[in-house]
């Protein structure tokens, strides 16, 4: 079950190889993040799942069915797709953008619009925005509409290509939290592409760190990767090498909180320490109850 890449290779006619030999299994109902610098082939891999790009060699299976046998247009309509800069249709209102795929698959317009309004609620958008055009929304609002559109046909799979790459850090935080909430509520099989390792560790149950040519540098949970980077490349990429993730407690001030600093001495967060004893996590590292993203670094 889930999505399976089997020895996938992509060579373009001009001879460049985007992906050399990529095999990975993406489990159902969880989030897998492909993370790497530009040119690592992460977007190409993502676009292979809905046949926007066809591999030169190898197979991709969704729930054990080879997708090369599925008609691309039909396949795309059952897979949600969210991209950077939202990719919304500028000539359609918000509600019509969200209703895009249901209308394409023959749902009557009135019904599709009605359901689209429910999706706006779901992604935290006010219904008063329904009749605006995308150009009248903020970047963050556009991305929310993009997510709502991706969910409109109730797909089992959601592909997200750097969806939060172009919004400011505060809005990005909000959107990431929304996505975590949606993921808890809906349990889609989500494949998320990003170049931001913090985002990868925050959102991914499984993180695939890619090197040039779609070579897997390491694959595992954020905990596994942070605790045991497989190579210098990974250690460098996740920031362990630069000491960004190795935190030490500063001397306690007047309150109960102790300041944590990274190896370079920059403040990274605080930890509560009543009576000089550091608080221990009792909810496990995956709960993400602390909004500071460096919370996972407590393991390191």
């Amino acid at each position: 079950m889930g999505i399976e890449f089997r020895h996938v290779r992509k060579t373009y006619p001009d001879g460049t190889t985007a992906v050399e030999d990529f095999s990975v299994t993406i489990p159902s109902r969880s989030t897998t993040v492909f993370v790497g610098s530009s040119g690592c082939g992460k977007t190409t891999l993502l676009r292979m799942i809905n046949r926007m790009v066809d591999p030169t060699e190898g197979q991709i299976l969704i729930d054990d069915e080879e997708i090369s046998g599925i008609e691309p247009v039909a396949l795309r309509r059952r897979i949600g797709y969210v991209m950077q800069n939202s990719g919304l249709l500028p000539h359609r209102t918000v509600v019509d953008n969200v209703a895009t795929v249901p209308v394409l698959t023959g749902t009557p317009k009135a019904k599709a619009r009605q359901e689209a309004l429910g999706l706006l609620d779901r992604v935290g958008l006010d219904r008063s925005l329904a009749n605006r055009y995308p150009g009248q929304l903020s970047g963050g609002q556009q991305q929310r509409v993009g997510v709502a559109r991706g969910l409109a046909a109730d797909p089992n799979i959601l592909l997200m290509d750097e969806p939060f790459g172009a919004v400011d850090p505060i809005v990005r935080d909000e959107l990431q939290q929304e996505l975590l909430r949606l993921q808890r509520e809906l349990g889609k099989t989500t494949v998320f592409v990003t170049h931001d390792i913090d985002e990868a560790f925050l959102l991914g149950q499984q993180v695939v760190i890619l090197q040039r040519g779609g070579v897997i540098a390491q694959i595992g949970s954020p905990q596994e990767i942070l605790a045991n980077p497989a190579s210098d490349f990974v250690a460098d990429f996740v920031g362990a090498k630069r000491g960004k993730r190795r935190l030490t407690a500063e001397e306690q001030g007047a309150g109960d909180d102790v300041l944590l600093v990274d190896a370079a001495g920059y403040p990274a967060g605080v930890i509560s320490a009543p009576d000089g004893r550091l608080a221990l996590s009792n909810s496990g590292p995956l709960s993400r109850s602390v909004s500071n993203k460096t919370d996972q670094a407590g393991d390191a």
């Binding site: 676009r47 809905n50 926007m52 247009v73 039909a74 795309r76 309509r77 797709y81 991209m83 800069n85 939202s86 990719g87 919304l88 249709l89 500028p90 895009t100 795929v101 394409l104 698959t105 559109r149 592909l159």
Partner: peptide
């Protein structure tokens, strides 16, 4: 971008 995204939605 818009054209690519529309294709990805299944136009």
């Amino acid at each position: 971008d818009v054209r690519g995204s529309a294709r990805a939605q299944g136009f």
